[in-house]
Design a protein around this nucleic acid. Sequence first.
DNA 1: TCGTCCCTTCGTACGCCGTATCGCAATACC
DNA 2: GGTATTGCGATACGGCGTACGAAGGGACGA
Lengths: 237, 237
Amino acid sequence: MGESTERARGPVWARDAAKPRSALTREAIVTAGLAIADAEGLDAVSIRRVAAELGARTMSLYTHIGSKEDLLDLMADEAAAEVLVPGELPGDWREALTVIARREREAVRRHPWMIELVSRRSVVGPNMLRHVEQTMSALSGLDLPIEGKFHVIAAVNDYSSGFVLREARERMAPRRDGWTDAERDAFMRPYLQRLIDTGEFPNLAPLMKDGIPSTDDNFERGLRWLLDGIARDLGRG
Amino acid sequence: MGESTERARGPVWARDAAKPRSALTREAIVTAGLAIADAEGLDAVSIRRVAAELGARTMSLYTHIGSKEDLLDLMADEAAAEVLVPGELPGDWREALTVIARREREAVRRHPWMIELVSRRSVVGPNMLRHVEQTMSALSGLDLPIEGKFHVIAAVNDYSSGFVLREARERMAPRRDGWTDAERDAFMRPYLQRLIDTGEFPNLAPLMKDGIPSTDDNFERGLRWLLDGIARDLGRG
DNA sequence: TCGTCCCTTCGTACGCCGTATCGCAATACC
DNA sequence: GGTATTGCGATACGGCGTACGAAGGGACGA
């Protein structure tokens, strides 16, 4: 049977995991991957490393996952579970969407590597779908066709993703290039000063000099703007 | 001199390129990298591959760039040049921001790999800064403190990034897993059907069945919502 | 109880990758 | 013409994902 060695196809979540005969299970592998990614970043997650962490040999992992991509998909969906809001959603659709968006942000702050995964491929695992379902349910009180609801949650989600992407990038910066804040400043300042001196950046120069003003409610403000715009449009219809 | 072999530090853009003695220049390397990424995706860009493309040996590239990360930074900033709007911006700040946002989207549609770079690290090259400067200049007619302007462009940019991230992900999907649309459908449908059958997704089931309704003005609509919300807030102040 | 089959484990090996190190040759400068 | 500098590249190292196939143990029918 030549095809017995063929690589598994289709979404990982639709494929059976191997029967557990020891502690080496798909679940344990995913959990170990998550721990490594949380502690050392996504680049530290290698098949060899995960195996070592579990006291197994490298190739044993392939009994339970089809490839490294599979592992990353499973990790992403596992983390997506944290986005789900437990309990009832607020009745008001704006409050409900806000609560959900906050949770997205918090989950990414806990697991910044989610950003890198999400920018590589769509995650359509069960937890991610539960999240979309929950978000759609936040709009169930609205008299709107399903496409309209989808447009709303897509726009809100796009804003959250973008914010969270930018935030995660800024938070990861020190670890990625291995600089302390002082080093970073020492390296960047002369470069930025030279750019300021060209006079090419009249509107930006004050910000480059003083740094970017960052208050914690930037996220809330942008979200409020967007929801205001949506509410006005719905009210007009 | 032990420190002569030390790795270069600080932002790439602040470091001198080597003097060109042949066709092997920093610029040529970046251009070759861009071509490969456009044609085959970011994963196809390796130092060895870029060198081969230029008819050089692998290690010669390191005369002109400090590391692969440097090359990726330079590529990202090169692509960022395409985001700059040539000529005058519209006088109305909403129109100006819209024009800029459209250009961001178009640039990423041409170079989907930008998404992966941008989710890894901040790009603060000259072209990216020119882009931010241009965006700030779109608000120069507004009577708003500089922090306020920054909050506005940050929110608009977050929305654009999020949309464009989602769009790029969807567009890259077929290439990434090497499925045709038919295969994708064949693999996904039974999986989604099983999820629908659980009854856990009452709000989502219609969308999973019929696919996501995608019209081309989703981007414009979300942007309009956000700008409406901002305009109202500014008008009230 | 004894085969038989299946399924998990994993040793080995291949072809990629980024890049440290260092010799060499050509150029630039005095 | 001699010397210092600098671009180029051969070699090598330690990582990676994973194909292949051998080995061993549990399940199960005879």
